[in-house]
Amino acid sequence: MADDAFTIAGEELGSRLILGTGGAPSLAVMEAAIRASGTDMCTVSMRRVDTTTPGSMLDMLARCGVRVLPNTAGCRTSHEAVLTAELAREALETNWVKLEVIADEQTLLPDPVELLDAAERLVAEGFTVLPYTNDDPVLARRLQQIGCAAVMPLGAPIGTGLGIRNAHNIELIVAEAEVPVVLDAGIGTASDAALAMELGCDAVLLASAVTRAQDPALMAAAMAAGVTAGRFAARAGRIPRRHHARASSPVHGTAVF
């Protein structure tokens, strides 16, 4: 069960669960969830300075000992996303970025054209690009080809908790992937996270499912267990599905009365 390292761009991460920090009611609740999840990396957003914001997110994340992954959430164009990534690199001294370029507020779905353009520009600037993408095998392939360090297809739209709507497409993305596949968005509960891993994903990224749960720390622990269970199952190799029953008890030596 050991010796199952998870690496992105040559860097080993201690957990296959990546946690978003959006949606938590307080920093204390977020911290408890991070600790319960065992995660090694948390996402943050870049927003205009607000002097009324209490406490420091970064201090809390540093206390937890997790890596910080800035995202470009809220960006609608390649231009906005590239500039936001550059600002995040300056602010956080990391060239890793979760690239998010959304099409509209209603669906929060990635805009494939802007996403690909931004990814290409950021790779050229030396960023380690982790794109949040649609569950589209062709787009995932294109993102890999231009040098993204991972692909992060959605299970369902952000914050919906609808789980994995197109498991077949996720399998197709995994089958072709030469970089880690991180299921990002749509997870509602622990079985969704387990399914993502059973489908062959390398990791799961989620936020709302934990931060908006009634007990975020408990749900974080459930997600960690789900990810681990799914990973073990994927490596163990499940039995084939059969149309008819197949006895597990021996068929020979059955008594005749």
Binding site: T21, R47, N71
Partner: peptide, 8 residues
């Protein structure tokens, strides 16, 4: 002027 804040 941007700063890191909570976000998915």
């Amino acid at each position: 002027i941007l700063t890191a804040t909570q976000g998915g």
